[in-house]
Design a protein around this nucleic acid. Structure first.
Lengths: 216, 216, 216, 216
DNA sequence: GATGAATGAGCCTTCATTCAT
DNA sequence: CATGAATGAAGGCTCATTCAT
């Protein structure tokens, strides 16, 4: 809800443009929330519009159709994740174990705990409806994420920290508890009134996993 | 699908009754497929009817509404899983490690590989729409499953096979790769043309997990 | 609930026939109630069947369609009224005033207070849907009723009891408070919790009317 | 039918705002005609829309449901009648007999002869379906109308024009021929090809009634 | 004669999309 | 750039009617 861009009038263009850009973002944000909450079909454009503070007609000034909006939501929301992931990969230093732990915790910090957490659930739910988008997501997010993790594990194997394993499978197994927690948390939030102790869950995962892969 | 109704014509009634009993199951089966494929909202009752080999009106002889059909699909499909889970629990003998491995493989055999695999994905996708059903599922399936696994792990801890761990968290972590694979497979099936080597995935999971939890 | 008709076989026809005739009447009675209560369109054949103690299919053994059932209900129910009216006409003795009063009271006794009271309301409501039936009703019931009353009034005029009036109009005016009360009572029953003092209403009507038409 | 459907779209688009205000009334008018003609259940929203010159969907921009439309039709149509009735009551001068006659003729002029005449028939037919609306109608229209008439009669009794009578009953009896004629005319219009000489009917009613109630 | 499972046309209602203002 | 009235294509659900048993 970043309102009023009425401050400086110096640049006449920027004003509008900024407003326009803001609108775009506000609509995407509203749509993300609703798509995650209710799923694609059950989300009404009227609700998206209301939550974004515009009218239905306005949506069509920014997006061609509901489908286009959905795709934009996923694509635009996921891009930062990819970028962050890549950045993370390059800044790695230290042992493989430390990196792996860091990656796991970072994922939760950057995705699991933020509004981005809805995206995986959304993709699971709507994959069949948007095959092309799903392929994009699978390749640019899932696979890339796995490769990121696989690289770390490979380092560990090569430098003798880890046992020799199929690094791609090991990467998937390092991620899957995260993925599942992300998705399940969206679904079962209301069933776990006392919440879900993510910290302990992550600690245990890292502990078990690193013990499991460590060279004896 | 179509049952042979050609058995015996002794009783005059059975013909109809058998048909009627069969219909229920056929409709549920058709609905399950479509709900999993497309989600609740996107599934049209006309399609369910067509796939079940009946007309739209007939659905209402068996279910009060689309919502009721959905709930019936989940409940009736999930009950066998619960029952099998309980049965499995009691037939356990052998070491905790063996049991854990067996449980993991059994789950995949009985759920991951069958049409039941669609249910978890369905629940993830539609949880917010059916809170009551979600609670039922969470308590009768998720939690029960976790407890089953937790019991095994506790055995292992007590008899010295496993390190002392939070058994409930450890149980969740033993299951989450399975859950995630079940759900992701539904969603990304078309993205993995060469399939997904489940056997290797399970082997690696069991290997890593048992190494991770084993007493040094 | 057809019983086994295996007891006495002497008269094969009468037994069944009686049952069959009874069915017919039970269905008509059930239909009358429901048509009056809810109107033609809002009355479901399933409800008629249930109230008559048969199944939907059975209705079609007795009536060709919902429309046919409706017409039968009106015709069969109204015939006794006509017959009684005719009988009444012939048994008249006494002064015109007495006859008029008697007719008014009889109408209420035979129609207004019985289940026949629903018919006028029904005809008012559904007249446009069944023009042919409406014509039948108008001619055989309404007009005939008016003529009956007109005859009495004519007697009164001729023998000097009543002022010279248009007998047909006077007849209608003698009846209309009855008709309106009959119809309104059906409609507003629930709005008049203390009931509606019909006796006083009739007394006042007769009093005013006879004073109004009496020769000064 | 009676209306010349001059609502056509000949003219190039009128102003939206003006259109929107008009739409409401046009829909109500179209619905009134059809509800009266066919009854609530038999009236299809598609027909209402067509007669109002809009599409089905548009109806829902103005009314929440078919039921809401029905209630609006009755309420909005009946309010003017109530208002006129009240106005009439206050403008009364002259003898009670004159007032009564005036009231009777006014009713026919303002209701019996206009499109409002359909409302009483509608309420008779659908009362059971809309109890709340019926109560409103009974209290705000029927009872109020009776009280209006009762006031006039009471005046007459007090000033010696009329005999002492139960004024409420007398009021009902002054109105019931009007009510019945209103309703019956809707129903039996097609059965009275030569029409129905309302003038003579009203004259006779007034004549008989005033003679009947007059102090001897 | 009775049954009741099955049908399918049709209705109310929703909602993504368009377009004149 | 924004609006919001209007559209029309479905979709869920009902119910009169049929027919094999």
């Amino acid at each position: 809800m970043s309102q009023t861009a009425t401050t400086s009038k110096r640049k006449s263009r920027p004003r509008w443009k900024r407003r326009k850009d803001a609108r775009h973002g506000e609509i995407v944000a509203a749509a993300l929330e609703l798509f995650v909450e209710r799923g694609y079909e059950a989300t009404k454009l009227a609700d998206v519009a209301r939550r974004a503070g515009v009218t239905k007609g306005t949506l069509y000034l920014y997006f061609d159709s509901k489908e286009a909006l959905f795709k934009a939501v996923v694509r635009e929301t996921i891009v930062p994740v990819i970028v962050q992931g890549e950045a993370l990969a390059q800044s790695f230093t230290g042992s493989a174990s430390e990196l792996l732990e860091q990656l796991v915790r970072q994922y939760w910090h950057l995705v699991g705990e933020t509004s981005l957490a809805g995206i995986p659930k959304l993709m699971m739910a709507e994959a069949a409806t948007f095959p092309e988008l799903t392929r994009f997501y699978y390749e640019e997010v899932v696979t890339r994420g796995h490769r990121l993790m696989a690289g770390v594990i490979e380092r560990g194997v090569k430098n003798g920290e880890f046992r020799p394993v199929d690094v791609m499978l090991a990467a998937k197994l390092a991620m899957s508890p995260l993925m599942h927690a992300t998705v399940a948390r969206q679904a079962f939030a209301s069933c776990m009134p006392e919440g879900f102790d993510v910290r302990a869950y992550l600690n245990t995962h890292i502990d078990l996993y690193l013990h499991g892969i460590a060279k004896p």
